[in-house]
Amino acid sequence: MMSTAALDFRVPSDLAQIEAIVAQVVHRCRECRFDARLLSLNVPVALTEAIANAMVRGNGEDVAKEVRVRAEVSEVRLVIEVEDEGAGFDLDACCVDPTTPERLEREDGRGLFLMRALMDEVVRVEGAANVVRLTLRRR
């Protein structure tokens, strides 16, 4: 029988909070026997990017504003929703290719690119511009 475990965090926009949330989501994925590579690379990096994006871009690092992270983990997949208090933005418009010669030496611009490279799907939730959903199938 398939089991689903849910995690729900609400934290202020403090970048120091990110690692602890990531560690708990990774732990839950480990319990659901996700592949070791997904646990050491895909999940932690993509989730770090998503939360950092919400805190920095969405909430402007205002600690009075919260970020909510919901993660549903099953033997089939991981679904994470990251919500901030910002107005939201167009994911596709923000996702540039940081590997081109003219962008390669830039300090910024790799966050969304990495999220998309490491997850199976990264989308804005329909009707909620300030919520990003990341999906990763278990393997």
Binding site: S40, P44, V45, E49, R106, G109, R110, G111, F113
Partner: peptide, 17 residues
């Protein structure tokens, strides 16, 4: 070190430059 995020990569790029 287990992993680096885009900000960490960005700092390395900036310092190397």
């Amino acid at each position: 070190t287990g992993y680096i995020d885009s900000s960490g990569l960005g700092v390395l790029v900036s310092l190397a430059k």
